[in-house]
Design a protein around this nucleic acid. Structure first.
Lengths: 341, 341
DNA sequence: TTGAAAGCGATACCAT
DNA sequence: ATGGTATCGCTTTCAA
């Protein structure tokens, strides 16, 4: 137990109030000798203010809760996002507290995660990628705390990447490179996309829209069913040997299937179609930096925190969704993006 | 502001103590009608206990701080580690609070991160991969809170993977597969390894020890200088065309350089040496699952929390370092590990 | 079965 | 320039 103000008061003979003032207000309105003595004793006793007590008086927790799902894949939290959330909060002298909600248990009315059962923080950032179970939405609503959803498309109070725009952007970039035979590689055909993250649909729809605007026909490379990991390279090979194969390919993620397929067919790197995939960090394949449709998670995190802080000031208001734009990351520090419209 | 106990007391006419007891002790020693009424009113007012006030009375924060460096690469926090830390804490009804310390600023005596400046939690988990600056160690020490270091080799109070054992294990596994021409691929030669994470040295030394125990000569594939990303594939090609090339290769991470090199040389997958790399998650290359030397971050996180809780009970004691063992992950659910010695 | 009072550590307000 | 007192929301102890 570190020393409290009271103990310092006892040691120095001053009252608790004097000690508090000297320690907090930088000693304004106090004799220099008083300050010196109190500061010296505080230092020697290793005094550190108790954030709990301070928060209680102030009526705020000084802390924001980040809610994640325990369901792997339902909460996407790359370290760049965690970092940006933390740092934006730190600028406001706020803590970040982590909470994970087990989907299965939420249905059980006996169960209630600590963060929702107790009153622990001033607001929530909810990182719940897919469709949240109704029980969870209810619980959060009943907590009456301001909340912002991350990576989730809702009618209000959310921040998410503009995946539709990203798909369009990919096409526009490839057009500037002179490509016309631009295909979209879709491994998940046949799988129900209703439960999937909105980006699975949006990226492809954005691609289609981009193609149409460029006067080109959308061209989806796919099978009538989902293509599992192990089968992807072989499938890509089928596409690569087509006489009119695409010169460029856009894909949700993982550009390497088509590239490995090319290599296995004995193609040189220059002969393999250009692959544009989505990512939030630089992608290299065996030391070769790849051009990607890039999302800056830092922007996402910062926007989410800013929205939440705004809501803290006025909890009743509903905030319009915020979209974060992609850019095409061509090389070190070289970026292609659309002019703001 | 959610309702407080006092308000419920006022509403129901009972005293605050009665309300508190009914709400916390499950109503033990109270008339059923009293319980019912209080519970009903509490429910209708949306009562949730204020964790702050409770913590203050209890004299504990109910929260553990996870300290990270802002210096990318100095804190390795895969989501599996974050998850295991969180969940082990949650089992004990403890929060997890995140704090990031900017290395540069720590030298500045004016600067002090909130987590160390104020008294905010009951202990620290320090995820600081490389050698921490002395200022930081001092600050943490002065905070007088129990702390455990993660992923860091120190004389006491730390939990880290057994990378030396992992290197040996890799050799022993490959021996069971009949390999004798086993090389270690080292791209970082010539770089000062003093600042590097201990695992860079330990994995290689473990490999050497394993080879000697098997009666084989260690065989390090390297250049006289650091091999940069872009040059690795070409360098691997030089090694692959050696007449007495290895049949198996162990490498710190990223098995794909040698495999891509093989493909570019026109080799079939079966002709490419088996590559064993270290990882804490399954590795697939273009849909092909790779055999890896695998570390379960869940064990690491849990061990760290358990150590910290132990230290909380008795802050003076120094805990012996805990090593987490690797295993070789061969296929789905198939694992090779050494018998406990 | 219920209630009154004290206290956790810090701050705000009002005195002196 | 300094101190007294009340307060935040809750729990613990003791008394009725």
């Amino acid at each position: 137990m570190p020393a409290s103000i009271k103990e310092i008061a006892k040691m120095t003979g001053y009252s608790a109030q004097t000690v508090s003032r000297v320690l907090n207000n930088n000693g304004a309105g106090h004799r220099k000798s008083t300050c010196d003595e109190i500061l010296k004793v505080a230092e020697s006793m290793g005094y550190r203010p108790n954030a709990l007590a301070r928060a209680m008086v102030l009526g705020k927790f000084g802390s924001i809760g980040l809610l994640l799902s325990t369901n792997a894949g339902r909460s996407y939290l790359p370290s760049s996002l965690l970092t940006s959330i933390h740092d934006t909060l730190a600028d406001q002298n706020l803590h970040l507290t982590i909470g994970r909600l087990p989907d299965e248990k939420l249905v059980d009315s006996d169960y209630m995660p600590k963060m929702l059962r107790e009153w622990t923080c001033d607001g929530f950032l909810i990182n719940y990628t897919d469709h949240a179970p109704k029980e969870m939405t209810d619980l959060i609503h009943r907590s009456r705390l301001p909340s912002i959803w991350i990576n989730n498309k809702r009618e209000d109070d959310c921040v998410h990447p503009d995946d539709f725009g990203g798909g369009k952007l990919a096409v526009e970039y490839l057009r500037t490179q002179g490509h016309t035979r631009i295909a979209y590689l879709h491994y998940r055909w046949g799988e129900s996309l209703e439960d999937a993250h909105y980006s699975v649909v949006d990226r492809m729809e954005g691609y289609k829209a981009g193609m149409r605007e460029a006067g080109l026909d959308p061209w989806i490379l796919t099978k009538g069913h989902k293509i599992h990991q192990e089968a992807r390279v072989e499938t890509c090979k089928e596409w690569l040997v087509l006489p009119d194969r695409p010169t460029a390919v856009i894909t949700y993620t993982s550009p390497e299937y088509i590239q490995i397929a090319g290599l296995e067919l004995g193609m040189k790197w220059e002969e393999i179609p250009q692959v544009l995939s989505f990512s939030d960090r630089p992608v290299s394949i065996a030391g070769r930096p790849q051009t990607i449709v890039y999302l800056d998670q830092y922007l996402l995190g910062r926007a989410a925190v800013e929205s939440l802080l705004e809501k803290t000031l006025n909890p009743e208001q509903k905030l319009a969704p915020k979209k974060i734009e992609y850019c095409v990351n061509i090389g070190p520090d070289k970026v292609f993006r659309l002019p703001p419209s």
